[in-house]
Amino acid sequence: MPSASPFLNVAFRAHDAAPTPVQIAACGFSVFYGAHEAVRNATLAMHTRKVTAIIGPSGCGKSTFLRAINRMNDLIPTCRAAGGLQVEGHDVYSPMTDVVALRQRMGMVFQKPNPFPKSIYDNVAYGPRVRGTTRRGALDALVQRSLERAALWPEVKDRLRDNALRLSGGQQQRLCIARALATEPHVLLMDEPTSALDPRATARIEDLIDTLRATLTIVIVTHNMQQAARVSDYTAFFYEGLLVEYGPTIDIFSRPREQQTEAYITGRFG
């Protein structure tokens, strides 16, 4: 049943905070850039087939935390992680982890749409090809299914060989979602996926998130509190690297426990 926030003029779309099994669990988890601690001692559990939003002012460590989940931070030479982070019960930072399999288990969508300068088909087929799927029929089916799940199929089904850069910004972002879905992930990590898009394209992405929540665990980092309130079941608020508050979105936006959370969502800073 939709309810209203006393702070935000927004209708909660997320209704379901009923607990499901835990998909991602952080326990005393920290990320360092050299000596700087970007994420400090975070502990939280994200639930299967729920949308979890991570909010907070710029530089609060929310993107760092998201990118730590699929070990994208490995690309930064000075970056290291400490503490526990488990995905489906498996320790992400264990030396035994198959990073490639881990990343394929988790699709990622970035701030700016970043399709490769290749054809639409090749973009979507990139992940499966990395995994070693080269059979034409299987690829075709996978590409079609992924584009359908990303609600892009009707628009591009006749121009799969076109360069992906010819699509509009919103289409490009949905193509990136399709590309991420093609590896058949269990989790979708979205790093401010609508910040470069206009309101109409944003709405389509949000609709898409609403559809995908039935099959996927989604973690979305966003600047936009209305968006967090609209699309997420759970919300985590980060401030200066600390996880200040985490709970069902309805609770965070209607009766936050912490002073800082309230100050942030009412727009007093950030």
């Binding site: 669990a25 488990q86 498996h90 982890t97 198959d98």
Partner: peptide, 12 residues
């Protein structure tokens, strides 16, 4: 913290 089923394919 509780965990669900252990998926062996993430192990190398």
């Amino acid at each position: 913290m509780h965990s669900i089923n252990v998926t062996p394919s993430l192990l190398l």
